[in-house]
């Protein structure tokens, strides 16, 4: 899977979460996904806490991308 495809997917998924196009994802944004994804509100909060590496309450594209590459390759690639 090419690097461009991964970047493209990362942006697509980030925008699926950041529906107000703010440039970051909040805990509330993740909770809103509860209806659209087969995950519970608690699991979505768990995902948010896992991805929010600096625990500042906002998910940046970089944090989101690190989590996605960890999922794809088993290690964080910023």
């Amino acid at each position: 899977v090419g690097q461009n495809t991964i970047l493209e997917k990362t942006h697509e998924f980030f925008q699926m979460c950041d529906i107000e196009n703010k440039g970051f994802i909040t805990r509330r944004d993740m909770q809103r996904l509860n209806g659209g994804l087969p995950l519970s509100a608690e699991e979505l909060e768990n995902v948010f806490d896992t991805l929010d590496s600096d625990s500042n309450g906002y998910l940046t594209l970089d944090e989101f991308s690190s989590g996605f590459s960890e999922f794809l390759f088993g290690q964080k690639v910023s």
Binding site: E12, F13, V47
Partner: peptide
Amino acid sequence: DPNMKAGAANEGVLANFFNSLLSKKTGAP
């Protein structure tokens, strides 16, 4: 080790999350 368990659980929920986004994007049931 409880930390190991928490790490594995987080990995699982992350995998679940990204797999859900992938299938939502591709429109797979």
